[in-house]
Design a protein around this nucleic acid. Structure first.
Lengths: 330, 330
DNA sequence: CATTCGGATGAGCAAATGTTCTGACATGAC
DNA sequence: GTCATGTCAGAACATTTGCTCATCCGAATG
């Protein structure tokens, strides 16, 4: 609109019109200067320049529209903030936390874990019931969590454990997490992956697991991470998945898992017989959880994260800078 | 205050405190980003970040105080605006107009004249009574004045004329100026400089000049310029001033003149016999004029301008970029 | 010279912003 | 444990800002 005004105005005569136009620009820059640089109020400027306050409003708006006023944020980590905001807007996340990484080739897990620990420390409140998955990232975040006694905290494992004893048992995350806040931990006393659908049904129906799952309906927060499907990923390493199964899942389109529910890059749970052998909370059930926190990052999880973002629509995403860029580019 | 807070806060423990401090910074940058870059309102940001709106106010103020938010005006002529504002603040001027000069060595008179013409064109209103000096700058501004018929305009010459006929008679400025607006011009039918105090008295008291001066009490605006005291200045060139007089004035401390009232750099009218022979309005009288416009520039007038700024405290100053810098530096 | 039109201007209102005061909370000292 | 201390968040108010509509002015036109 203003641009049209300009051209219409300009085709008049020469000298006076030009000078009036200059005067307009002069006034605009002057108003912008006094407002943004000197910090005067619009009323003051209006009085000084001898025009109405409304005119100042218009001049300032025009100056901003023309880009004559440039506002930049100059602070450490501001690029992270920009990325975070981009993620939030793109994926409908309430809050994204990005851990800075110094070297793009590094494993981002420690950084993500630290960020996750900080976040969890701040968000925990008395009376909370938290559901958790497990994995290396979550486990690594334990030392970063500022534990303190909070009344009535309950932590529920959303996924079965592993049989194999290991030095670091990621599956114990829920337990240790509960301890940090003096709360009760509810583990799923079962493998994440059992031999057959029948075993699964038996466990669920006749061994008390259903009760634990029922508690998942009342969760205040769920802490989840995704697994990739490469050979390095926890799922594979802890021995739950054979190479044949892995291939078969990949062939079926899987790019990773969310509580051992294998998903594709579009956020769909793939159709595969292994589903009937997994002991984990239903993903649709988690949708009712008000705070869904997705904590993951790393080169081999980009596709899985993309899917997970669609599938569970997390309210909070904690990942690293490099992964964030990949998610936004993809 | 905040700095003290910081130091007091920091001396607590390590990890948590650092992370809380980081969280504060994170929140601040995030608020600044959402406010200044994304243009959200403070309420929206408060809701998104889960804090009170007042906190956002504080975060934004803190970010600005720390200089994390940088606002720059990026437009042509913005440096001029900055200079103008500096002049206004330093010398208590309502409005300074600076003409841009391409080459610092050039004579700035044409540029100043153009700016003066634009200003005068805009400021003229029906019913105005304007007092004027004369000089090359004012005369040169005539072609830049957008003349139009305004009711009841009166233009009064504040200074006597020159005897010598010249191709361009600067002393006729008042007359030509009045014509541009269809108003009445009142020239002082007398030389600016007469031979003796007695002649001056005779003219004032018995030749009707006093009446013209009396009109100067009701001026709405005075257009003034200063003269330097170099050999090139109008005062000297039109033959009013002999070389001996010029020397004598310089010895007495004169750096230039304002309506042939010779002044020093501190803005005092110097004590000199020539004063008793000048036919001009008293400078103190001009102080009552609501709009005092000082129009001058050029290398040889810096000192005179400095004095004039003090002496008549103009409400409007029209000069050039180079002179402006000199005034601010001096 | 009257007319008409576009753009600029000012009053009044609604929204946003800034400030001040009060109370809650955490912390450290006794 | 109690108390002083200082920090921080929130309610209420004052100010500033943004917007809309009615109006006015000036320029182009017939």
């Amino acid at each position: 609109m203003r641009g049209q005004d300009k051209s219409q105005t300009r085709k008049k005569v020469g000298a006076e019109q030009v000078s009036l136009s200059d005067a307009g620009q002069r006034l605009r820059i002057r108003a912008a200067w006094m407002y943004f640089i000197e910090g005067k109020t619009q009323s003051e400027i209006a009085d000084t320049l001898g025009v109405g306050r409304v005119t100042i409003v218009r001049l300032l708006a025009e100056a901003r529209r023309r880009g004559e006023v440039r506002i930049t944020i100059d602070a450490p980590l501001v690029e992270l903030t920009e990325l975070e905001r981009a993620l939030e807007c793109r994926f409908g996340i309430e809050q994204a936390f990005l851990a800075p990484v110094s070297d793009a080739g590094d494993d981002p897990t420690p950084a993500i874990a630290a960020a996750a620990g900080t976040f969890i420390s701040q968000v925990m409140r008395p009376g909370m019931t938290v559901g958790t998955g497990w994995g290396r990232t979550l486990y690594t975040s334990l030392p970063h969590i500022h534990g303190r006694i909070l009344d009535d905290v309950r932590v529920i494992s959303l996924l079965g454990g592993i049989a194999q004893a290991r030095r670091f048992n990621p599956a114990e995350f829920a337990w240790q997490f509960a301890e940090l806040f003096g709360g009760d931990g509810y583990l799923l006393p079962a493998p994440a992956l059992v031999d057959s659908p029948e075993t699964r049904q038996a466990l669920l129906e006749r061994c008390g697991l259903a009760e634990v799952f029922a508690m998942a309906d009342g969760l205040d927060m769920a802490l989840l991470s995704v697994g990739g499907i490469s050979r390095q990923t926890t799922t594979y390493r802890v021995g739950h998945l054979s190479e044949a199964e892995r291939r078969s899942l990949i062939d079926a389109g899987a790019v990773g898992d969310l509580l051992y529910n294998f998903i594709d890059a579009d956020g769909r749970v793939i159709d595969h017989p292994i589903n009937a052998r997994v002991i984990s909370v239903d993903l649709p059930r988690l949708q009712k959880t008000p705070q869904r926190v997705l904590i993951s990052g790393g080169r081999d999880k980009h596709a899985a994260l993309t899917g997970a973002l669609t599938l569970i629509a997390p309210t909070v995403l904690i990942t690293d800078e490099v992964t964030a860029r990949a998610l936004l580019d993809g």
